[in-house]
Amino acid sequence: MEKPGKYSPGYYWGSDDPIIVGEGLEYYNPFLFMFRDIAFSSQTEKVELYVSKDIKSAYWIRFFHFSPESFQYVKSWFIHDYTQDYDFWEVYEPQPLYSNIENGYGIFAGYSMQLYEVYPDSTLTFE
């Protein structure tokens, strides 16, 4: 097994696990998989994720835990960014960026993150 450190782009994330239903952001950013933990029934849940092709080497993965505000913000960022675009037929319906600042713009929110080195078929524990 190769040592981690060589980042391999192009791994598209997804999951068929009913506990972690994706937020449908893969269209805007396939390297990101966002889900809500509302279906978690206990402190520890075992869930499954897949990537688009066979992993032959180890690689890095980041787990984020977002506060509700940062979750909203990150999600709306990708849609906001994506809908700035236009094509031959029409402009996309613009989507405003989430903000929780009164009388101003921006975001006040928190998150935590952990970095993992991952091997094929490995099980990760995120606390």
Partner: peptide, 12 residues
């Protein structure tokens, strides 16, 4: 100017 989530990570 806004905070941008880095959707594509080049290195850890």
């Amino acid at each position: 100017r806004a905070i941008q989530p880095n959707g594509y990570v080049q290195s850890p």
